[in-house]
C-alpha cells in the first residue's frame, strides 16, 4: 500500500512537472489530425498579377475588393507585385482563383503544366479583346527611326518587348532589342510622355489613344500610329480544373460584379467593366 501511495504522489508530481508539455503535445496532435482545409478552406482568395499594366494601386485594390467580397462570405483579394512570387505561389494552389493576363496564363500553363482552366474573360465596352498600338511623334515615320530610342509603356519591360517583337517580327529583332523601355504607371502617362518629349514612342492600348483624342485633341494630332498588334484577350479568371463548391461560388460572384454599380467601379480599377464565360475559340487561343 505504502509503495502504491508513494507511486501515486510521484506520478502526480511528474504530471504537474510535465503538464504544460503534455498539453502542448495534445494540442499539436489535434492540429495534425484536423485536415488543413478546415482552416485554409475558410477564406478563398482571388490571386492577382498582371504584367500587361503597371498596376501599382495594390493597397487600394485590396481594400476595395476585400470590402466587396466580404458581402458574400469569407473571400479576399491578394494582389502580387512580383511575377516570380506569384508564379511560385500559384503552383498547386486550390484555395482560390487567379486573375491574370491571358498572355501570362498561356505561359504559366506551358511552363508548369498547370491543371488550370480559364473560366471568365474580362469585357470592356462589350469586347473581350483589345489591340496594342505603337505611336510616336509624327516626325517618326517608321520603326527604323526608333532604334535605341525610348518607348514608354505601362507594361513590364519583358511583356512590352515581347509584344513589340510579335508586332514587328524577326526581321526587326535588332531594332526592338535596342529600344529602351520606360515603364510608366498608366497608358495615359505613356502617351503624355511622348507628347511632352520624355519618350520617343508609346506602346498603349488602342482605347487609351481614343481617350487622348477626346481629352486633348491637339496632343493627339501630334501623334502617328506606327503599328498595331493582333487582338489580345483581356485579363482572365482561371481556376483549378477540379473546383469545389466555394470556388464555383467565387467565380459566380466575380461574374456578377459588372452588373452592380459598386462592383463595376471596382472592376474599373482593373481596366475592365465586366466578365463573360470563356468560349471555346478563346479557350483554344489560350492553349486550352
Amino acid at each position: 500500500m505504502s509503495i502504491l501511495k508513494y507511486n501515486k504522489s510521484e506520478v502526480k508530481k511528474v504530471y504537474r512537472k510535465y503538464q504544460p508539455l503534455i498539453a502542448f503535445c495534445l494540442l499539436a496532435c489535434v492540429l495534425l489530425i484536423i485536415p488543413n482545409k478546415t482552416f485554409s478552406g475558410n477564406t478563398y482568395t482571388i490571386y492577382f498579377y498582371n504584367p500587361e499594366t503597371n498596376i501599382n494601386n495594390f493597397a487600394s485594390l485590396k481594400t476595395e475588393f476585400d470590402q466587396y467580397l466580404s458581402n458574400y462570405g469569407s473571400f479576399q483579394f491578394q494582389p502580387f507585385s512580383d511575377r516570380k512570387s506569384f508564379e511560385e505561389f500559384v503552383v498547386g494552389r486550390s484555395d482560390g482563383v487567379f486573375l491574370l493576363s491571358s498572355w501570362h496564363f498561356s505561359q504559366l500553363k506551358r511552363k508548369f503544366q498547370l491543371d488550370m482552366q480559364a473560366r471568365l474573360v474580362g469585357v470592356l465596352k462589350g469586347k473581350a479583346t483589345y489591340k496594342k498600338i505603337l505611336t510616336a511623334k509624327n516626325n517618326i515615320i517608321n520603326i527604323d527611326s526608333l532604334k535605341g530610342k525610348v518607348v514608354a509603356s505601362s507594361g513590364s519591360e519583358d511583356y512590352t518587348k515581347k509584344i513589340l517583337m510579335q508586332m514587328h517580327g524577326e526581321e526587326n529583332k535588332d531594332i526592338v532589342g535596342s529600344m529602351k523601355i520606360l515603364t510608366v504607371p498608366k497608358d495615359i502617362d505613356a502617351l503624355m510622355a511622348v507628347g511632352y518629349g520624355m519618350a520617343d514612342s508609346a506602346l498603349t492600348t488602342e482605347r487609351s489613344l481614343t481617350k487622348l483624342a477626346a481629352i486633348n485633341p491637339k496632343q493627339y494630332g501630334f501623334l502617328m500610329s506606327l503599328s498595331k498588334s493582333e487582338e489580345i484577350l483581356l485579363p482572365i479568371i482561371a481556376a483549378p480544373a477540379q473546383s469545389d463548391e466555394k470556388i464555383r461560388l467565387l467565380i459566380a460572384i466575380i461574374e456578377e460584379m459588372g452588373t452592380a454599380l459598386d462592383g463595376k467601379r471596382k472592376l474599373k480599377m482593373l481596366g475592365v467593366d465586366g466578365w463573360k464565360k470563356v468560349e471555346e475559340l478563346e479557350r483554344v487561343s489560350l492553349g486550352k
Binding site: 499594366t53 493597397a59 481594400t63 495615359i188 463595376k264 474599373k268 480599377m269 481596366g271
Partner: peptide
C-alpha cells in the same frame, strides 16, 4: 468619370 478609375493609385474613403 468612372473610366478614369483605372488611373487611380490610391482611393481614400
Amino acid at each position: 468619370n468612372i473610366e478614369a478609375l483605372d488611373s487611380v493609385n490610391e482611393i481614400v474613403r
